[in-house]
Design a protein around this nucleic acid. Structure first.
Lengths: 295, 295
DNA sequence: CGTGTTCTGAAATTTCTGATACAGCTTTTC
DNA sequence: GAAAAGCTGTATCAGAAATTTCAGAACACG
């Protein structure tokens, strides 16, 4: 959960955003005949008809282009592009937050809060899986399964914990695995010996951290392969990353959810373990012996 | 032999709605780096990102306009307007038939590993939520929202990362929060000053770690309140814990999944943040100021 | 370590869209 | 029933957007 500062403005406003369609319906009787034609077309195929060009819209409505322009101006928009932008935003907001309006303003009742939070997280996981290219995932698995590569995990303030989680598993499955601390001072010596044989796996979600970006850019410049786990808005690290695995992170909270990133991490661990099973199994057994023999 | 300009995909047959997104996902590995950037942007904000102008799309994807054009041409469209029209029609068709979205779940050979793993994890999350007593969850929220308490997070080899994750969030929301390292040597001095006012939040799943258990037992003996996040088989810490939140952890992997623990952690963070909002908000803002002013 | 191929972006070019001015037509009003 | 007011469409323009060109850069290959 990355801090997103002022997320309280994200809460549903007391007065729900009045759909443009609603307003048009309400003002219908004040329109001129041509405007009514435009309004009817728009409402009958709301809002897609409005996403066409002016010419197309005019033609479908049976009026002229200038009439369409006058129509949107009358609705208070600065121009046709302005009008279209509004339609897109409205559509996007409505389509992407099916759960936003479903959540009542309950005052912290235990089970409902937990249950609805869980549903949102589950939605994130589904969306995350949907948006991952199978080939991309497979490519990362292959990369992390290459015993000649050296793997370095790193992350930001919050995602650093995920990097640690990944590292603690991979460390057992294979060799040449380590974790790079967040402090830039601590990189310097590490960075020197990073080159073509190295893989940097970076975790970074919004409020992207400059030092993590700097680390990856330098590493990439030196020939290292960068794998990025991030949010759908893509950390700037994506510019230098060979592979990008985006996860959905928006949750009904003042914080973002890292569950999708964890899912990807665990899936990678599972896949690589399976891939390297012949060598991983003895390693895991050895670790087990060391632990039990220790006390 | 590749795309022949205008394929029949322009007129989708009623039987299969092959979302463009799906096709992109499957062809992802055949894309050039720039095309991958474009694809990632489009998929992450599907399909709205594609409804912008070429320039805007290019800018958001971090590539040049020609690369965007090459991308859509490569997908088989006659040009950007053609591409946009396709997106609009697909969106309209999907939105007008609510059942179309209902079953895009299995796409077979693509990423069975990732998809089935995700389904297993989702099942874990559901089971976890159902088995949590609302009152227990609420009690923990109340405990962690008490500003007079001192909160200490700790965990085992793998779960230690989750404890860190929790700590990094709670540290911002409230004061008197810290993380206790796994090394028993490092406890000694800390343990001295732990008493009735303290809360230990321990993460521990099977292959329960003796040192974590020892820490909690000692702390409990000194009057501290112990909260335990564990698996359904219950870590031995449960004997001294005031509150226990079990999470399902079994996944199709050689490793256990911590997703359920993360879910509980994030839900706790969300609930406590909401609970302490009046004091948490200024803290979050202050942290934000410090971060932005740092560079 | 060159060499050929592919990929990429800056800039020029072309296309097309949104916007405007103006004249004809319709409706309203006295 | 005539004049005024308002509405609408044609023709045209300005500007923005998509597209193409081309040269440099990155990359893979031998």
């Amino acid at each position: 959960m990355n801090q997103s500062g002022m997320r309280d403005d994200h809460r549903p406003s007391p007065t729900d955003p009045p759909s443009l369609a609603e307003r048009i319906r309400h003002e219908m009787d004040t329109f001129t005949p041509s405007e009514k034609r435009a309004a009817h077309l728009l409402l009958s195929h709301y809002p897609f008809a409005g996403l066409d060009t002016v010419a197309e819209f005019a033609s479908r409505a049976g009026i002229s282009a200038p009439s369409v322009l006058r129509f949107v101006t009358r609705l208070g928009f600065g121009g046709f592009p302005d009008f279209q932008r509004h339609l897109r935003e409205e559509l996007e907001a409505q389509l992407l937050s099916p759960l936003a309006k479903a959540s009542p303003s309950d005052k912290g009742q235990g089970a409902p809060a937990l249950a609805s939070f869980a549903e949102a997280v589950i939605g994130n996981l589904r969306a995350t899986v949907e948006n991952i290219a199978p080939a991309e995932f497979e490519a990362v698995v292959a990369l992390l399964s290459d015993p000649r590569r050296h793997i370095h995990f790193t992350g930001g303030r919050f995602t650093g914990a995920l990097a640690r989680y990944a590292e603690s598993h991979f460390r057992i499955v294979r060799s040449h695995v380590d974790f790079i601390e967040g402090q830039p001072v601590l990189w310097r010596d590490r960075l020197i010996e990073i080159g073509r044989k190295d893989v940097i796996v970076a975790f970074d979600i919004r409020r992207y951290q400059e030092d993590v970006t700097a680390l990856c850019e330098t590493a990439a410049k030196q020939g290292a392969t960068v794998v990025l786990l991030t949010d759908p808005w893509l950390s700037p690290i994506a510019r230098v990353a060979r592979h990008v695995l985006p996860a959905h992170i928006v949750a009904p909270s003042n914080w973002d959810s890292s569950a999708g990133l964890l899912l990807l991490t665990e899936a990678l661990v599972a896949a690589v373990t399976k891939h390297l099973w012949d060598t991983a199994k003895p390693r895991m057994e050895a670790v087990e012996r060391l632990r039990s023999g220790r006390s």
